[in-house]
C-alpha cells in the first residue's frame, strides 16, 4: 500500500506576490548598473536635446517644454527594458524550477519583476521631472492634470514592462533578451517625442502619427503644458491597454511553455 501523507496547505492570499515583489525590489536596488543607466541616460539625453540640439531646433529656448514629455517616456522605456534580462536570468538559473516544485503560483515571479519595474521607473521619472524643472521646464498643470499625467505614465510603464517580461521569456538567454530590448528603445525617436511629426518626411510621418508612442506623448504634453489634447488620451489609453493585454497573453503562453511540464 502507499501511504497518504498530509500535504502543506496553500499559502494565505497574495503571499507569493508579496514575497516576489520584495525579492525583485532587492534585485533592483542591488543591480546598481541598471539603476544608474535608467536614471542617468535619460538625464544625459535631456541635457543633450535641451542644450546641444535645442538651440538649433527652437531658437527661443522653449524646446525644453516641448521635449520633456518625450524624455519621460524614453526614461520609462530604458528602465523597463532591464525586466527582460531579469526574467531571462530567472529562467536560466534554475531557480524557477525550484519554485515549480513548490505549492505556489510560480507565475507570481513575473508579478514581482513587473511591480519592481513600476516602482523603479516611477522614481526615475520623478528624478527626470525634477531635473527638467531645474533646467527650465515650466509645466502649467494643476493637481488633477499632474495626477492624470502620472497615471498615464504608470500605465505606459506597466504595459511596456509586461512586454519586456514576455520578451525575456521568449528569448533564449539574458544576452539575447538584452538585444531585443534595444530595438524597442528606438521607437521614441520616430514619434512626436523630439520633433513635431509635421517636420518629418511623408514616408515617416505616417508611421510616426500612428505609432503608439505619439498619442501617449501628446497626452502627457497636453496635460503638463496645455497643448491641445483632442482625442489623444483615448488613443493613448487604448494603445497601452492593447499592449498590456497582448503582452500578458503572450507572457502567459511563454511562461507555460518555458516553465510548464516538459
Amino acid at each position: 500500500m502507499t501511504t497518504s501523507l498530509a500535504s502543506r496547505p496553500s499559502l494565505p492570499f497574495a503571499t507569493e506576490e508579496a514575497t516576489f515583489i520584495a525579492r525583485s525590489l532587492r534585485h533592483s536596488v542591488r543591480n546598481i548598473d541598471a539603476l544608474i543607466m535608467a536614471i542617468v541616460l535619460p538625464l544625459l539625453l535631456m541635457i543633450l536635446f535641451v542644450f546641444v540640439f535645442g538651440g538649433a531646433i527652437d531658437e527661443t529656448g522653449g524646446y525644453v517644454t516641448y521635449v520633456v514629455p518625450g524624455i519621460i517616456l524614453l526614461c520609462a522605456g530604458f528602465g523597463a527594458a532591464s525586466t527582460a534580462v531579469d526574467v531571462a536570468n530567472d529562467m536560466e538559473t534554475g531557480i524557477i524550477d525550484r519554485f515549480r516544485t513548490m505549492r505556489i503560483r510560480s507565475s507570481a515571479v513575473l508579478t514581482g519583476h513587473v511591480v519592481a519595474s513600476l516602482v523603479r521607473n516611477l522614481i526615475a521619472t520623478g528624478i527626470v521631472i525634477a531635473a527638467a524643472i531645474g533646467v527650465g521646464f515650466r509645466p502649467i498643470a494643476g493637481p488633477a492634470d499632474w495626477f492624470a499625467a502620472v497615471a498615464i505614465v504608470a500605465l505606459y510603464i506597466l504595459a511596456i514592462t509586461y512586454l519586456f517580461a514576455a520578451i525575456g521569456l521568449a528569448s533564449g538567454s539574458p544576452e539575447a533578451a538584452n538585444g531585443y530590448g534595444f530595438i524597442l528603445l528606438f521607437l521614441p525617436y520616430v514619434s512626436s517625442a523630439f520633433v513635431p511629426v509635421d517636420t518629418l518626411p511623408d514616408w515617416l510621418r505616417g508611421f510616426a502619427d500612428n505609432q503608439p508612442l505619439t498619442p501617449i506623448i501628446e497626452t502627457i504634453r497636453g496635460l503638463l503644458t496645455g497643448t491641445d489634447l483632442e482625442h489623444q488620451p483615448v488613443l493613448a489609453i487604448g494603445w497601452c491597454a492593447a499592449i498590456l493585454v497582448a503582452s500578458v497573453a503572450w507572457g502567459t503562453v511563454m511562461f507555460r511553455r518555458k516553465a510548464g511540464r516538459r
Binding site: 501523507l5 500535504s7 532587492r26 538559473t93 534554475g94 513548490m102 505556489i104
Partner: peptide, 18 residues
C-alpha cells in the same frame, strides 16, 4: 505532491543576488 516534497536539483537553484 508539491506540498509534500523538498527538492535539491543538480544545478544549484539559489538566487545569486540575495
Amino acid at each position: 505532491v508539491r506540498g509534500l516534497i523538498g527538492v535539491t536539483g543538480q544545478s544549484a537553484a539559489v538566487d545569486p543576488v540575495l
